[in-house]
């Protein structure tokens, strides 16, 4: 039977969310004072951003304390939002509407296959099937360029917003051989670390950033922000180690990887934005832009984290 009621919450979840509550309250209070002292565009943006972080924290709390089915529903809805944003900004022709509809239909199907473990199919096979469907329906297009564009863009969108975040569910659903692993805590460790990495790369970049790494694609990225951000993530990884069965060296490898892939994910999606010529992916999250602007680093880190954990534990046994 499916469990849809509250789980008994582990002690660790209470601690980590109390910590988050204190941290976010402190930030809200600090930015409120800053805005009162001297109102500027930056203080307004910081207040908006913190408000959105409160909402994200609430969503993470729901994922943490509710049974798995809710995590699947929440993450598939986020996946859907991200796909919708991408489809809105990419230059697709109206002839591809059938293919787009297929991709929309594939989102709940994909998550259902992962969650219910249907017939023990490898879920990425659905991605291959989707590729052929997109190809088939796009061939009605008259010009080869339009067909090629549809196949590339649609398949890329599905890969980015469906395949990558589905690893978050895989982290929850994987049957770990190590009995010390609590999958839910592992997922929380990952989400927290990615978010902290984002926040601190942004903060250090704003405070101390001088050397611009990619002035054209992403003017906000600086060498100082990147290095100090990754260092902060390493420290937070050690602090949050109590959620995982990792040793110190394993924690350092995992958090360092999250820092680097988070940076790369952010950079990739910024580059796409510049190519299309837009500033943000949408208006869904005030202060941040669209959903994609927020989860960009999460998307790229998720598979790396998942395979790293499976691999590390494999070595560990």
């Amino acid at each position: 039977m499916l469990k849809v009621f509250f789980l008994n919450t582990p002690q660790e979840i209470t601690w980590i969310f109390s910590g988050l509550l204190v941290f976010l309250s402190l930030c809200s209070f600090l930015f409120f004072l800053l805005d009162k002292h001297k109102t500027s565009a930056l203080s307004k943006e910081l207040i908006l951003r913190t408000k959105t972080w409160w909402k994200i924290a609430l969503l993470t709390l729901l994922i943490a304390i509710l049974p798995d089915i809710w995590a699947v529903i929440i993450i598939s809805y986020i996946s859907f939002l991200a796909f919708r944003e991408l489809i809105t900004v990419l230059p697709l022709d109206s002839i591809n509407r059938t293919s787009i509809a297929l991709c929309y239909a594939a989102i709940p199907l994909y998550y259902a296959i992962i969650y219910l473990k249907w017939l023990s199919i490898d879920p990425s096979l659905l991605l291959v099937a989707l590729f052929f469907m997109i190809l088939f329906f796009s061939l009605r297009g008259l010009y080869i360029i339009a067909v090629r564009r549809a196949v590339i863009l649609l398949f890329f969108s599905c890969f980015l917003t469906l395949y990558l975040p589905s690893h978050l569910i895989l982290i929850l659903q994987h049957t770990y051989t190590n009995p010390n692993i609590e999958p839910r805590l592992l997922l929380l460790f990952f989400i927290f670390l990615v978010s902290f990495n984002d926040v601190f790369q942004f903060t250090w970049g704003k405070l101390l950033g001088k050397t611009r790494l990619f002035p054209k694609t992403s003017p906000n990225k600086t060498l100082e922000g990147f290095i100090l951000g990754v260092l902060t993530t390493l420290i937070f990884g050690i602090v949050l180690r109590f959620l995982t069965p990792f040793s110190y060296s394993q924690t350092l490898i995992v958090s360092g990887m999250i820092g680097i892939t988070g940076f790369l994910g952010d950079l990739t999606l910024s580059a796409i934005k510049r190519k299309i010529g837009i500033k943000d992916y949408g208006l869904a999250l005030p202060g941040h832009g669209g959903v994609l602007d927020r989860i960009d680093s999460l998307l790229f880190s998720a598979p790396i984290f998942y395979y790293l954990v499976v691999y590390l534990i494999f070595i560990y046994e």
């Binding site: 859907f80 919708r84 509407r97 059938t98 509809a101």
Partner: peptide, 20 residues
């Protein structure tokens, strides 16, 4: 802005798109 993508003239397929 963007409403034409959701259900263009002549189409019967309603698709989610961000519109404002």
């Amino acid at each position: 802005s963007g409403m034409g993508n959701i259900l263009p003239k002549g189409s019967r397929l309603i698709l989610p798109y961000n519109a404002i």
